[in-house]
Design a protein around this nucleic acid. Structure first.
Length: 423
RNA sequence: GGAGAGUUGGCAGAGUGGUCGAAUGCGGCAGUCUUGAAAACUGUUGAGGGUCACACCUCCAGGGGUUCGAAUCCCUUACUCUCCGCCA
C-alpha cells in the first residue's frame, strides 16, 4: 500500500497518475488525507492525556516513598478520571486508524510514467517480438490433443483424482516437467539468483504481507483446520522471507529463485480459454524475486526482462513482450511486462511470464526496509517475475515443436530430458 | 498428542513492580593512529507516531487483564527449544 506521508505530499500527482488505471481517486485520496488529519488530532489529544497520567503516576510513587499516602490517594482519583478519558479517546482513535487503513488497502499502486494509457488488455503495448513462428504440417494439433496422442498428460485422470485443472503428467510428460524445472533453476542460479525451497502453505500474516489478503482471499485454497493457505505463487513465501526486516544497504540487492507448485481456485473461469494447460488449479512455476535499492530497481527490472528473453531465445520459442497498459497493470505493480509465447496450433498468445516492479508498495506492507547511507530507514523496492511458468511453456513446446515424426525437444533441454523426441 | 522451559533492539544477551526504552558484547557509523588497510583506542548508534524544531506518546512475540504505575504479576493465542509418544 501507499504511505500516508507520500499521499499527503504528492496528492495531485497521485490522482493524476491513477487516472491511467481509469479511476478517479480524488474522493478516496481526500478521504485519506482528512482521516489522517483526524487521526493526528486525536493522537495529540490522546498523547497529552497519557502524558498527564504518566506524570501523576510518577508523583504518586514519590509521595508514597516520602511517606505522604493521603496526598497520593488524592492524585490516584485524578488518574482514574484520566483513564476514562484515555479509554474513550483510544476507541475513537482506533476507529480512525481502521478506517484509514481500509481506505489505504483500496488504493492501487501508482503506475510508472512509462505505463501506456488504455481501457483493456487490448491496449497493452507490444514492445518486442522474437523467435520464428513455425510452419506446421497439415494436421497439426493443439497441445491437449498432442498430450492424448502421445499419452504424456492425462486430464481426465486428474478429474477423477481431484477435479478439473489438476492434470496428471505421465512418462515423458512427467520427465519433461522435471527437466524444465531443473533447466529454469539452473539458468536462474547461473544468473546470480540463490535457490530456495519454500513452503507451499503460508499463514495469514504472509497472505497480508504480499497482498493476497484481505481482498483476494477467494483466489486461494484455504486450509481452515490450521488457518493456512496454499500458495498461489512462490512470490508469497519468497517475498515474506523479508517481512519485518531491516537490511543494511550493503545487503542489497537480494536475488532469489525458487520452484513451487502454485494453487489457484480461479473461481469463475470457464470455457475454451481454459482448455488443456491454458488455465489450471495446480501448476508449476519457477519464480525470481529481487529486493533492490530504490535507485536501482528499474535497472534490475530490465535485467530480469533480458534474463527471461535469453531463456526463450535458447528454447527457440516464438514470443513477444507486452508492456501492460494502465487498465491491466495489477493492483500492487507500478510497471509490468508480460511475456507471451505463441501457441501455433491454437493461433493465440499465451502468457508465460509476468515481471513487475512494485517499488515500495509491497515493502510498505511487509515493513521491508534498509538503512541508507545517512543512517535513515528507507523502504526497499521489490520485484518479481516468472522464470518461468511451466504449463504454457509446455504447451508452446508441444505445439511449436511438433512434426509429423513427433515432438522435437529443444536442444537446450535435451541434457535434462535425456531424450530428443516424443513420438 | 502429553510434560516442562522459553520468546527482550540489526544480532547475541542481562534485566522479576517505579530510578528501564532497557546493562553488556558483536555489528554499523564517525574519529584518532597509519602512506593505505588491519589491529587498537575514543565517540556514536533501536523502531514508529508527533513537531518547523523540541516536548510528548507508543513499542520488550500477538491479544486481553491486575495496578496510581508492568519488559517484570495474571489469563490467552502463536511460535521456539528439551523430554516422552507417534511417524516418512
Amino acid at each position: 500500500m501507499l504511505q500516508v506521508a507520500f499521499i499527503r505530499d504528492h496528492k495531485d500527482d497521485i490522482i493524476k497518475r491513477l487516472t491511467k488505471r481509469n479511476i478517479d481517486a480524488t474522493a478516496l485520496i481526500n478521504d485519506v488525507i482528512n482521516l489522517d488529519e483526524d487521526r493526528r488530532m486525536l493522537q495529540t489529544k490522546l498523547d497529552n492525556t497519557k502524558a498527564e497520567s504518566n506524570a501523576l503516576s510518577k508523583e504518586i510513587g514519590n509521595l508514597f516513598k516520602s511517606g505522604e499516602p493521603q496526598k497520593a490517594n488524592i492524585l490516584k482519583e485524578k488518574t482514574t478520571q484520566l483513564k476514562e478519558t484515555t479509554k474513550v479517546l483510544e476507541l475513537e482513535f482506533n476507529e480512525k486508524v481502521d478506517a484509514l487503513n481500509a481506505l489505504l488497502y483500496k488504493i492501487p499502486n501508482v503506475p510508472h510514467t512509462s505505463v501506456p494509457n488504455g481501457t483493456s488488455e487490448a491496449d497493452n503495448e507490444e514492445i518486442f517480438r522474437d523467435g520464428q513462428i513455425p510452419q506446421l504440417h497439415d494436421g497439426a494439433l493443439p497441445h491437449w490433443e498432442l498430450a492424448k496422442k502421445y499419452n504424456i498428460i492425462d486430464f481426465e485422470l486428474g478429474n477423477k483424482i481431484t477435479g478439473a485443472g489438476f492434470p496428471v503428467y505421465i512418462d515423458k510428460g512427467a520427465r519433461l516437467q522435471r527437466a524444465l524445472i531443473a533447466y529454469f533453476l539452473d539458468k536462474n542460479t547461473k544468473a546470480g539468483y540463490t535457490e530456495y525451497q519454500l513452503p507451499h502453505l503460508v499463514n495469514e500474516a504472509s497472505g497480508f504481507g504480499t497482498g493476497q489478503l484481505p481482498d483476494k482471499e477467494g483466489q486461494m485454497y484455504h486450509v481452515t483446520a490450521d488457518n493456512l493457505y496454499l500458495i498461489p505463487t512462490a512470490e508469497v513465501p519468497g517475498t515474506n522471507i523479508f517481512r519485518d526486516t531491516l537490511l543494511n544497504e550493503s545487503d542489497l540487492p537480494v536475488s532469489i529463485t525458487g520452484y513451487t507448485p502454485c494453487f489457484r481456485r480461479e473461481a469463475g473461469s470457464y470455457g475454451a480459454h481454459v482448455r488443456g494447460l491454458n488455465r489450471l488449479h495446480q501448476f508449476d512455476k519457477v519464480e525470481i524475486i529481487r529486493v533492490e535499492h530504490p535507485d536501482n530497481s528499474y535497472d534490475a527490472f530490465h535485467a530480469m526482462v533480458n534474463h527471461v528473453k535469453d531463456i526463450l531465445i535458447e528454447l527457440k520459442l516464438p514470443y513477444r513482450i507486452l508492456k501492460l497498459c494502465g487498465a491491466d497493470v495489477t493492483f500492487a505493480s507500478a510497471l509490468t511486462y508480460d511475456f507471451e509465447v505463441f501457441s501455433t496450433a491454437q493461433d493465440r498468445w499465451l502468457e508465460i511470464s509476468s515481471i513487475s516492479n512494485f517499488e515500495t508498495f509491497q515493502a510498505n506492507r511487509l515493513k521491508l526496509r534498509f538503512k541508507n547511507s545517512e543512517g535513515k530507514n528507507e523502504f526497499c523496492h521489490t520485484l518479481n517475475g516468472s522464470s518461468l511458468a511451466l504449463p504454457r511453456v509446455l504447451a508452446g513446446i508441444l505445439e511449436n515443436c511438433q512434426t509429423e515424426d513427433g515432438i522435437k525437444i529443444p536442444e537446450a533441454l535435451v541434457p535434462y530430458t535425456g531424450f530428443d523426441i516424443i513420438s
